[in-house]
Design a protein around this nucleic acid. Structure first.
Lengths: 196, 196
DNA sequence: AATTAACTGGAACGCATCGATCCGTTTCGG
DNA sequence: CCGAAACGGATCGATGCGTTCCAGTTAATT
């Protein structure tokens, strides 16, 4: 159980009943799926329905909708940050960058909520988490560029924006995006970023 | 006055009063600006306020909010289609493609509403207009690819999706997009699309 | 200048949806 | 088998929407 979601149940003096614990897990899982599929703006009813639980139960297990969604997003962002930090262990600057770029795009493409949160979507209290991710990304990008692997005529925000742009819309004109459309987009962008 | 917006006032037997005509123009201009800046989901109050007009006036000059927004979008799409068709006059397949790509991205980047409408945003009655644009784009792309200018390992929807992806989010992480961010994105993508 | 039909602004209506609460009922655990 | 804990979902109050309505105003015509 990730940190922020865990903190939602902190302060409970004694262990809750078995069904209460089970319902909490279900609610978190349902909320994660709903945030992934529908983005920010998930409703309490949607989450409760997915969890197979009533509205009363949701509010008995969770302080508020905002707290639940924010906790889920905070954990998702922190996990991504950890992966970015881990990528710096790769001694090859370009490979570290390119490998993490794939993670960055894939995770965002698979969660509308995460994508929206990282696109400055709402005024949730995620600023510190976002700042951590941004710093890790900046290091990854600047190291690859200093090594001469990324075109020198770009600054690092350019690179960041181009990566963020790789996430495709669900539809474009009459065409539905394929499941791996993000990968096709990213391949084009990575080619365009590479120096030489 | 473009075709679809014009059609909103068709059927008026005799010329309306001068203030009525002026208010209609103001409403259309206000609605265009609002759709550009705020996307679909503009409200009647927002448009009326921008036009410096009351709600009653809006509904006296326009049949409904949907009709107004749809007409504006239809005209915007049709104008883009005309530009795409015009690009085919350029004998150089690559230059025709690249030049229109710039128009395509710039227009979408400057109008959230148009961008949303072309991203399958809402169930407005724009299918035929969208289909026309798509066909013009397909021709441009396929011609450039047949000429060997676009990488051969992509299909034309890949190219279309990558162009649509060039429109940046307003923010990414803590960074605000610069006014020309779309151009920087597009430059990277164009490089990645080019064969050789 | 007088007349009147057209036009105007904005309060108000009806509806939909949301987060959150409340309470009669059910279920777990000792 | 009992009581505390938890349950479901009707319900509340607030919000925001598109649209209508009407008392007052204005532009065109005579």
């Amino acid at each position: 159980m990730p940190a922020a979601v865990d903190a939602l149940v902190a302060g409970n003096t004694n262990r809750p009943r078995a069904d209460a614990q089970r319902n909490f897990q279900r609610l978190v899982a349902a909320a994660r799926a709903a945030v992934d599929e529908q983005g920010l703006g998930v409703t309490t009813r949607e989450i409760a329905h997915r969890a197979g639980v009533g509205l009363g139960t949701l509010y008995r297990r969770v302080p508020s909708l905002d707290a639940l969604v924010t906790a889920i997003l905070a954990d998702a962002i922190d996990e991504m940050t950890a992966r970015a930090a881990g990528a710096l262990d790769d001694p090859d600057p370009w490979r570290a960058f390119a490998d993490f770029a794939e993670v960055f795009v894939q995770l965002r493409a698979s969660s509308r909520g995460l994508h929206a949160a990282l696109s400055g979507g709402a005024g949730l209290g995620l600023d510190e988490h976002v700042a951590g991710l941004q710093e890790a990304l900046r290091r990854l990008i600047c190291r690859a560029q200093a090594a001469g692997s990324i075109r020198a005529d770009l600054d690092w925000p350019d690179v960041l924006f181009s990566l963020a742009s790789a996430i495709p819309a669900v539809r474009t004109l009459d065409l539905a995006a394929r499941a791996d459309q993000w990968r096709r987009n990213l391949a084009i962008i990575i080619t365009g970023l590479r120096a030489g």
